[in-house]
Each structure stands twice: as structure tokens, then as C-alpha cells.
């Protein structure tokens, strides 16, 4: 077993190490750039490529959106948001659960509904939401 492991280790050539390191750098940089997100302030609801509505995240409200296949229910609950029902077969969008931060997104491809949290541009300490 140990021998086999050693063999597969030898399979990795010097150039592969270079590729692996580049890949790791890419992971770190993309995470840092794309996940450096403040708490969200607003929710945008898209149907295909059309912005349907923008809601403040600081409320409790349920919205029903008609998509391609049927009605998707979106629940905003004081700073977080999730899909609570959807006509898509695999329910990935519902399983994704709550999202809270700016730039976080839930996509339901079958029903062509997506939601995205956006943060406020901060030139101030607080806002009278």
C-alpha cells in the first residue's frame, strides 16, 4: 500500500507541481476577491435575465414568483433569505438554505428564477432603512 502511494507521488512531475501551485493560488485569489463580502442589505429577484424586484432584507416577508415552470416561493426573514418552495425536480435551490451576505446567490435553473443579495455602498455608518 505504502509502495503504491509512493508510486503515485512519483507520477507527479515537476511541471505538475507548478500547475498545482498555480491552481492553489487561483483558489486563494478567487476566494479572497469573490468572498470578501459584507452583510447584505437588499435582495434582487431575477426571472431569466430580467430584474423583477428589489427588496430590503430587513423585513419578514414571503414572495411568490411565477417562473417558467410554476411558482417559486421566496422567504425573506430579517437579514436572510431562502427558497421555500419551487417546482424544479431536484430542489437544489431549496437545499441551499439561507443566504445572508452580499453577492450570495441562489439559482434555480429549471424555473429560471435567481436571487442575489447586494450590499449597500458604504459612505456612511448606518442607513435609515
Amino acid at each position: 500500500m505504502k509502495k503504491k502511494l509512493l508510486q503515485s507521488y512519483k507520477l507527479i512531475k515537476i511541471g505538475d507541481w507548478f500547475t498545482i501551485i498555480l491552481f492553489c493560488l487561483l483558489i486563494i485569489i478567487s476566494t479572497k476577491l469573490l468572498w470578501n463580502m459584507p452583510q447584505g442589505e437588499y435582495l434582487e429577484i431575477y426571472k431569466n435575465n430580467e430584474l423583477l424586484a428589489t427588496y430590503s432584507l430587513n423585513q419578514k416577508i414571503t414572495k411568490e414568483i411565477k417562473g417558467k415552470k410554476g411558482k417559486t416561493k421566496i422567504v425573506i426573514d430579517n437579514g436572510r433569505v431562502r427558497f421555500s418552495s419551487s417546482p424544479c425536480p431536484k430542489k437544489y435551490c431549496i437545499h441551499q438554505g439561507w443566504i445572508t451576505k452580499a453577492n450570495q446567490t441562489i439559482i434555480c435553473i429549471p424555473n429560471e428564477i435567481s436571487i442575489s443579495i447586494i450590499g449597500a455602498k458604504k459612505g456612511y455608518d448606518t442607513i435609515n432603512y
Binding site: I27, S30, Y46, N49, N103, Q104, E112
Partner: peptide, 20 residues
């Protein structure tokens, strides 16, 4: 085409890690 919104790039790191 499917979601013309920059919000999706939030998912990119997950996909890059899985690609790795």
C-alpha cells in the same frame, strides 16, 4: 445567457476547488 448577473461569481471559488 442563463443568469446575466455578477452575483453568480460568488459560486466560482466552490467550482474551482471542486475542479481541482
Amino acid at each position: 445567457w442563463i443568469i446575466p448577473h455578477n452575483g453568480i461569481f460568488y459560486l466560482l471559488p466552490i467550482f474551482i476547488v471542486s475542479a481541482f
